[in-house]
């Protein structure tokens, strides 16, 4: 009798154990993500509607849309939005173009390719704060060579740092970002290039396609999905990437290099106005989600047509 009960109960317990096994394995990761990312995210959204200043003990009350009203007239925020477009657009575009060229160059077999590849990818390993400092120093007329080269090329009259020139300052962080980010594009695109079956090229060559035609009709279509997803991810990522700006210019001179992400950081870190910072962050989040949705929708309608 007991044996019968046992044999009937065990499968149930076993089944329960089996069903919970994957959850057991993913639990630590899920708990971490929920506790350290989702909870603060929700809290951050609530801050956007509250008055939270770290140094003001009387703050904390609900203020409704006050932060957003302030944002609407905040000239610094508007500048930051425009700057974000500049910063993201220029960085992604230049990184992509040179990343693609580099990937195509590295996809050709040659002696010492492994070493060359490692050297080309090395900037990607440099910590972002060091990248920022390093490029700030390169632009420094006292210690760096770049201003002197610009003078020699006739681009500048006297050696000075472009980082303190309001009209040119943005190009400093962009240059650093390009140097640092090309390898990411190159690596991703190189992997995609290597996944293209070689016999396709041979078949195309036999069919009489020249190198340009082969690139257009084989390489590009094969790379297109990777290009699309890499650009989407990088655009979102770079528009959030404030490290270089914080390190190199701190948003200056006169907010000319302030992007939204660095503006959030400055508002939270220097002014300690968490409520306002969260309101800006929420706007940024909505903008980025809209952008991502738009891209996904565009891609779907494009795929449907194709």
């Amino acid at each position: 009798m007991t044996a019968l009960v046992a044999s009937r109960r065990r499968p149930f317990l076993q089944r329960l154990a089996q069903a919970s096994e994957p959850w057991l394995y993913t639990a630590p990761a899920l708990i971490l993500i929920v506790a350290v990312m989702l909870v603060p995210l929700v809290l951050g959204v609530s801050y956007a509607f509250r008055d939270i200043k770290l140094l003001n003990p009387f703050s904390g009350g609900f203020v409704g849309l006050k932060h957003f009203e302030a944002l609407a007239t905040d000239q610094a925020f508007r500048t930051a939005l425009v700057n974000t477009l500049w910063w993201t657009g220029a960085s992604v575009l230049i990184q992509f173009v040179f990343g693609l060229i580099l990937a195509l160059l590295l996809n050709q077999p040659f002696r010492g390719r492994a070493v060359a590849q490692a050297l080309c990818f090395l900037p990607w390993a440099v910590p972002s704060f060091l990248t920022g400092l390093d490029w700030a120093w390169l632009f420094n007329p006292v210690i760096g060579p770049l201003p002197h080269w610009f003078v020699a090329l006739g681009l500048m009259e006297t050696p000075q740092s472009i980082l303190s020139d309001p009209d040119l300052a943005m190009w400093g962080p962009i240059a650093a970002n390009v140097w640092w980010g090309i390898p990411f594009f190159a690596i991703t695109l190189l992997a995609a290039l290597q996944a293209i079956p070689k016999d396709l090229y041979e078949a195309a060559a036999i069919d009489g396609a020249g190198p340009i035609e082969r690139f257009r009709s084989i390489t590009l279509p094969f790379l297109a999905p990777t290009i699309a997803i890499t650009i989407l991810l990088r655009t979102v990522w770079i528009s959030n990437f404030a490290d270089l700006i914080v390190v190199m210019t701190n948003g200056g001179p006169a907010d000319r290099t302030q992007i939204v992400a660095s503006y959030i950081f400055t508002t939270a870190f220097r002014r300690l106005d968490f409520g306002y910072a969260s309101a800006i962050a929420l706007v940024l989040l909505v903008l980025l989600l809209t952008y991502s949705m738009l891209i996904v929708l565009l891609r779907q309608s494009f795929l449907k047509r194709g």
């Binding site: 899920l30 962050a281 940024l284 989600l289």
Partner: peptide, 27 residues
Amino acid sequence: GKYWITALMLLTQMFPLVMLIAPMFKI
């Protein structure tokens, strides 16, 4: 739950981490 776990993890890769700076400090 596999699909949802994957979606959740993808989501964390999309939103700006800088958003979390203030609440994280408070927590």
